[in-house]
Amino acid sequence: MSEFQTSIEDRQIDRSQMKVSDEIAIEITDMNKWYGTFHVLRDINLTVNRGERIVVCGPSGSGKSTLIRCINALEEHQKGTITVDGTTLSTDLKNIDKVRSEVGMVFQHFNLFPHLTILENCTLAPIWVRQVPKREAEETAMYFLEKVKIPEQALKYPGQLSGGQQQRVAIARSLCMRPRIMLFDEPTSALDPEMIKEVLDTMIQLAEEGMTMICVTHEMGFAQAVANRVIFMDQGQIIEQNEPKAFFNNPQNDRTKLFLSQILGH
């Protein structure tokens, strides 16, 4: 990891916009989830303020992906409440639609639509969900594609792009819906090492602009540089959370120590 850590540390990070406000973006209280009889998430309590950048880490199977998938209702939770931007996720389908259109999500395997061009990938949801006129949607899409530095690929198909480029397109696709919160589900895990940096750069850029972000990632360099809070999860529960500096330098729980020693050890 050291390589990427240095590459991020080299970068001048502009913290002027990274302000955490008092406004609550996401509030999760006593949330529980089961797969059949398997208790995946246990008594999760988490409040995310607007402008916060949270990194969630933990061993595989600890429930971290499930947690953020619950936030935009890709998974259903069975107990407790999740409130996103004042909308409580319930069985009301309208609320689910509302939350989904306000929360952007980036997946480990990009999940771009292979039958559509990059531009069409980005304009699809604005046109069909937000009912934005096509030209306006395309302008927005080009704006964000420029932001992730691949406007010249707009007319290509996802299959013609490298992994890193695809993931940046996936970020741009989410941004086109003008979300107020972005969720990242291990966005760099499926990438070759040399492509991780370009995706992390894009994410840092987002953070600099004050986006509320929750990232499931093992990029500890990114966590140290950008996050204002790191959460460690194991066995479906939040074990420890703290500011990055304190988290990395002085972990309290034994599990956290073990985990950190395993991933930072070499």
Binding site: D30, N45, G80, T81, T91, D92, L93
Partner: peptide, 25 residues
């Protein structure tokens, strides 16, 4: 232990038949 707060029971509305995941299907 945090207390589990049960959201107040809403009155049944007809539109729930279409827009509520419990009844829609």
């Amino acid at each position: 232990m945090a207390e589990v707060t049960i959201p107040p029971r809403e009155a049944f509305r007809l539109s729930q038949l279409l827009y509520d995941a419990r009844y829609r299907s």
